[in-house]
Design a protein around this nucleic acid. Sequence first.
RNA 1: GCGCUCGUAGCUUAAUGGAUAGAGCAUCUGACUACGGAUCAGAAGGUUGGCGGUUCAAGUCCGUCCGAGCGCGCCA
Length: 579
Amino acid sequence: MADPIVYVEQRIAAAFAKVAGAKADGIDTAVRSSDRADAQVNGSIALAKAMGLTPRDVATKVLEVADLKDICSDAQVAGPGFINLTFQNEFLARELMSSSASEKLGVRNATKPRKIVIDYSAPNVAKEMHVGHLRSTVIGDALVRMLMFVGNTVVRENHVGDWGTPFGMLIEHLVDLGETHAANELSVGDLDSFYRSARKKFDESEQFQARARARVVLLQGGDAETLRLWKLLVAESTRYFQMIYRTLGVLLEDTDIMGESAYNNLLPQVVERLGKLKMLTTSDGAEVVFAEGFVNRENQPLPLIIRKTDGGYNYATSDLACVIDRVERLNADLLLYVVGAPQAQHLQMVAAVSKQAGWLNSSREMVHVSFGNVLGADKKMLKTRSGETVKLDALLTESVERAAAAVAEKNPELSDVAKAKIARTVGIGAVKYADLSTDRIKDYTFDWDRMLSFDGNTAPYLQYAHARICSIFRRANVERASVRSFEPVISHTAERELAMRVLQFDSALWDTIDKYSPHRLCTYLYELATSFSSFYEQCPVLKAETDAERTSRLMLCDLTARVMQAGLNVLGIEAPEQM
RNA sequence: GCGCUCGUAGCUUAAUGGAUAGAGCAUCUGACUACGGAUCAGAAGGUUGGCGGUUCAAGUCCGUCCGAGCGCGCCA
């Protein structure tokens, strides 16, 4: 326990229960941070009516019962019935020590650790990764890291698009080019042109279309030679994905790939099981499930197509197979899908059918971690086939280059090796942070300048705060660990503000996890950095007035840096010691 | 047509139903020979798309209208 608000909340809740008894049930007695005091309680107003008292009377009683004298220097009923709390500096100091002593910096572990399968990134074989994949990859990876941080078991799954009708055309194109030539073309990372040429042939030549269709049949029938060619495509693409992932610094590995093809042999089983459950209906020649509450344009029930008229399966079948696999083989109790908002209805239908079939229930659920569309400067969807796609590796390269220019300007004395390393850390961090720091649900306007700007609420600003602290310790020639158990003395306002902020890491991270919204942690870290910068201006550390004050401030600096580093780390962003 | 999402300062945005809507960018005014100026302090900038409702309290919930985007049977 380190967050004073979390701590006082328990006492307040108990006090409310004592004062109001059962009437307090369902009343929000949460304690929140406030700009009028350290914390604010506001359940009294809601309770007043039920108790036949004025809100201020309720608040006064609660305050009497809670008896917060040992931790609060001030506790007052204010306004219509709020309780404003001010914590004692000694209490904050104790909490800082508790946080400093804990490996997880005061963050509570999950009370019930879960097994969580998280589906993210999902690029397509033989296609370039673009900004849409950036969102899924970066958001998904941040969630993986924070869910693991609080003690969950997390399984990463990269649902790569490696199966289906386009592969007929891609394989035939590969055959036309010759394997060596095709491999060369694919290995230079120019996947889009490969895909486009195949597409062009497909659109222009009926003969090619026929070949492509025949090839799909061979592929799905397991023809050895076709599979060999298919694997060639997959292998080249996988190498390309891994290159991007390594550059991006995400956790995804080859072994996390569970492409559509991986579920191929489960597909007949899906049909069989749905059939046994009497959920299948034949409609227009296709085998479908009608999930309740979904209608089409004509207000007719909207089906989930399990088996097409031609006997083939499609992505709904494969997604259902996924659910079965994740629940039954992996024994997951939470399935997260970090997938764009346009898939919302599809995923709802998959969830509805899975529930109806009994694969999912209230303790095994799937959650769509949806994110907004990526828009161009014209505020229109960035389309994949328009040819105007921003390629991910080009984006990352440019970001690192811009960061390199900044490093060269600010720190010309650093070695070339150090400069290059910092440029990568800063450049990649900036891109990831730009993606993570706004509410994922909203549409996202792609903007080079904003993404690569190093001012304001950006990764470099947070990294800079961290680097400055490291610099203080370098100059002081003091081991970071040596100040960690020192009990700090809080006197200056800026010091106190920073202390309060540091202690909120726990609630900020949990708030982020509860909503699967990384931008909340970003906001917290930005505020932490702001508080530190302000402290840094106002409170000399190395030239503090006394040794005790100096050590106290060093302790606070160390803890701030550790929280910053841990916070950036769960976002998948590195915190350099110099920049 | 039906459904989902979004609409906050010039721009980019934050805000569990809580008091005076909080930041950054841009603009303007200031600041150290103290630990890194990729900084800090301050000013100005808002009828939270409109109207109505629920509530002690609404940017937030409900209704309605306007605007934008996405989805809606065999592509994934």
